[in-house]
Simulated assay, not measured.
Amino acid sequence: MAKYHVSIYTKERKTQWDTLVKASPEATFLFRRDFMEYHQHQFLDYSIMVFDNEVLLAVLPANRVGETVFSHQGLTYGGFVFKPDLSFIEIDDILSSVLEFLARHGIKSLDIKITPEFYQTENTRHIIRCLKNLNVERYRKDRIFAVNYAKPFTIHKTKMKHFNKNQDKGFLIEEVNDFGLFWTEVLIPRLAEKHNTTPVHTLSEIELLKARFKNEVKQFNIYLKDELLAGITIFDKGRIVKSQYGATTKLGEKERALEYLFLSLIFKFQTEGKHFFSMGTVRDTAKPLGYNKGLLRQKKELGCLEYNQDFYKITLA
């Protein structure tokens, strides 16, 4: 018998949901409803809320496809988000209550993409330990790269040489509110040309997110003689910042503008007291080894360490 009451999120619970997310040790603006719902037309939301009487203890951002519930496929990572100061015993009961609820409602499996290691709280690590005692399969492990500011990090000597040399080139770096120029003149053309793909976010979507999260969604552009050469889109999650997009023009590539911008931001966020600068994954299933070797080399040369992100499937029936 489930100890706690479990229900599916409804819009009437938005304030309650967001209040828990903001206060949680697992807090990130990606779990707020205004972020989750910018692409709501693409997913059947099946987000879960766990209550002890009227007290909200935990939420699980999620969507449903047939008989499977996913910790939300529209998010880079997911998992449970907990009220502060819960005990491990309470977390055990939350997990049991959720699994019982899903099985009772005809769900055959729950897929959870755990946050990368450097995001993880003690609560998350406890959930991972619990999962290993269940009928669970770890079906995927991604490599995530980030600069850890708590540890000495080394920028490749060639990159530092060019960075120091280019100090006098006349580069201008600006944080801008207008994403249009970067999206239309740099990001979309370069992704099409180099990878035959498009950005995950359309221009209208990233503009909507900027309007909703003015302090968390940021755009940095770099110019030379008033010409835009490159840009980096940043998601600021508090102690962690993530480069969501980075792209350069052909001239910018020649001038090493994107490299200069990355290094400038690495040092900027270090002085601001950030804990990690995440540069994401190198996963590329189109490559023979399943990852992009060029991206791997670039991120390591920018001072990144390698971390894991695990994906689990819990079979319920």
Results as ranks from 00 to 15, higher is better:
Leu187Ala: 07
Ala146Ile: 05
Glu227His: 03
Phe145Asp: 10
Asn221His: 07
Gln167Leu: 11
Ile155Thr: 10
Gln167Val: 03
Thr124Gly: 00
Asn133Leu: 10
Ala146Tyr: 00
Val217Gly: 05
Leu224Trp: 05
Arg138Pro: 00
Ala150Ser: 07
Leu172Arg: 04
Ile128Phe: 02
Lys113Asp: 00
Tyr149Phe: 15
Thr202Lys: 15
Glu193Asp: 12
Lys151Tyr: 06
Thr184Arg: 13
Leu191Val: 15
Glu185Arg: 08
Thr202Gly: 14
Phe182His: 10
Ile155Lys: 07
Ala150Thr: 07
Thr121Glu: 08
Cys130Phe: 02
Asn164Gly: 09
Glu174Lys: 08
Trp183Lys: 11
Glu122Cys: 12
Gln167Trp: 02
Phe213Asn: 03
Lys161Cys: 07
Asn123Tyr: 13
Glu205His: 12
Ile222Thr: 03
Gln120Met: 11
Asn135Val: 04
Phe145Met: 10
Tyr223Val: 05
Thr184Tyr: 04
Lys169Gln: 04
Thr124Asp: 05
Lys165Asp: 05
Glu193Ile: 14
Phe145Thr: 06
Ile206Met: 15
Arg129Phe: 06
Leu224Phe: 11
Thr202His: 03
Asn133Phe: 01
Gly180Thr: 14
Lys210Gly: 03
Glu216His: 15
Thr115Ile: 01
Glu216Gly: 15
Lys225Glu: 01
Lys161Glu: 04
Lys165Asn: 03
Asn215Glu: 11
Gly180Pro: 00
Asn123Phe: 05
Ile127Pro: 02
Lys194Trp: 04
His126Lys: 08
Glu137Pro: 02
Leu187Tyr: 12
Gln219Thr: 10
Ile127Gly: 00
Gln120Arg: 09
Lys210Val: 04
Glu117Met: 09
Lys194His: 10
Lys151Trp: 02
Thr154Gln: 09
Ala192Glu: 14
Thr115Lys: 02
Cys130Leu: 13
Asn123Met: 09
Val136His: 00
Ile144Glu: 00
Thr115Pro: 04
Val176Glu: 09
Arg212Lys: 15
Glu174Val: 12
Arg129Ala: 08
Asn196Leu: 13
Pro189Leu: 06
Phe153Ile: 06
Pro189Ser: 12
Val147Arg: 07
Glu117Asp: 15
Phe163Leu: 04
Lys159Gln: 11
His156Glu: 09
Glu122Tyr: 13
Arg125Trp: 08
Arg125Gly: 02
His201Lys: 10
Lys225Pro: 02
Tyr223Thr: 02
Asn133Met: 01
Asp142Val: 01
Tyr223Pro: 00
Asn164Asp: 10
Asn135Cys: 06
Tyr223Ala: 01
Gly180Lys: 10
Leu191Gln: 14
Glu122Trp: 06
Tyr139Gln: 00
Leu134Cys: 01
Val176Ile: 12
Phe171Glu: 00
Pro199Asn: 10
Met160Cys: 06
Val136Glu: 01
Leu208Cys: 07
Leu131Phe: 08
Glu122Gln: 13
Phe220Val: 04
Leu203Cys: 06
Ile114Gly: 00
Glu117Tyr: 05
Arg140Phe: 00
Lys169Ser: 03
Glu117Gln: 15
Ala192Val: 12
Asp178Asn: 13
Val217Glu: 03
Pro189Thr: 08
Lys165Cys: 03
Glu207Cys: 11
Gln167Ala: 05
Phe182Tyr: 15
Phe163Gly: 05
Asn166Asp: 08
Arg212Ala: 11
Tyr223Cys: 07
Phe163Gln: 08
Lys141Leu: 09
